[in-house]
């Protein structure tokens, strides 16, 4: 992998985003508004067993929020006609994938830095701080899986006429295993109902999930981004 090229691509995406704020602002607004909606919907109907569902709520919001960003991840290349410029460069296609995935990770992480405290305020006051290392490990591995899968699928769907519709259709079924592991792991941490072994099992599953899609991207990205 060309480190200089990798850095250039990530820096280009981040600078573009800082200048336009198209992706992060829409992701941030969606995530915070969805949490507010969940807060009122579930507290009105009784919050007695709420901690059982909080992990699911959190990751549903993050997965759909990430989709907004993934849909935009190749927007500059497509809208500005720059995909040809990128493909003309003597750069390994896997480097393009890793740079795009890293940019998506940065945007998702930036949202979570703000969204997790909002989530803690509404649904899990004090409980996240108690299990912070395990929670962070879950977030990092789940984010990596979302970005690894999402970047690959965003690349495949970017040349289709209905890419905004097609990406969720192919992404959501494939992200369900990750969603189950991340949501159940988070709920277990927040409810205190499960011990360390069950959380470790979910972390191991997420690690394997991430590895599978990174290897898949390694094997297919040249074709995915090709003609």
């Amino acid at each position: 992998m060309g480190w200089r090229q990798f850095k250039a691509m990530v820096r280009k995406d981040v600078v573009s985003e800082l200048r336009t704020r198209e992706t992060v602002v829409s992701m941030f607004l969606f995530v915070v508004l969805a949490m507010i909606v969940f807060h009122y919907a579930f507290t009105v109907s009784g919050g007695g067993r709420l901690s059982f569902y909080t992990g699911g709520m959190l990751w549903v919001v993050f997965v759909f929020g990430a989709l907004l960003g993934l849909n935009r991840s190749f927007a500059h290349e497509k809208d500005d006609g720059c995909l040809d410029g990128l493909l003309l460069c003597p750069v390994d296609r896997m480097t393009i994938y890793l740079a795009k995935m890293t940019a998506n990770l940065i945007f998702l992480g930036a949202i979570q830095v703000v969204a997790v405290p909002v989530f803690a305020l509404f649904f899990a006051s004090g409980r996240i701080a108690t299990h912070l290392p395990a929670f962070l490990a879950l977030v990092v591995l789940a984010d990596l899986g979302i970005a690894a899968l999402g970047t690959l699928l965003a690349t495949i769907t970017m040349n289709t006429r209905s890419r905004d519709l097609l990406l969720p259709i192919v992404f959501l079924p494939l992200v369900i295993p990750l969603l189950i592991a991340a949501a159940s792991g988070t709920s277990a941490l927040l409810s205190g109902a499960a011990g360390a072994p069950s959380v470790l099992g979910r972390l191991a599953f997420l690690l394997v999930y991430d590895g599978v899609f990174l290897v898949l991207a390694y094997g297919t990205y040249d074709v995915a981004i090709g003609e």
Partner: peptide, 19 residues
């Protein structure tokens, strides 16, 4: 094949790094 949200210098710097 230029990024509209980047400056002329940023565009050239990006491609210089890529090559």
């Amino acid at each position: 094949l230029l990024y509209r949200d980047l400056t002329a210098h940023e565009n050239l710097r990006f491609y210089a790094d890529m090559y």
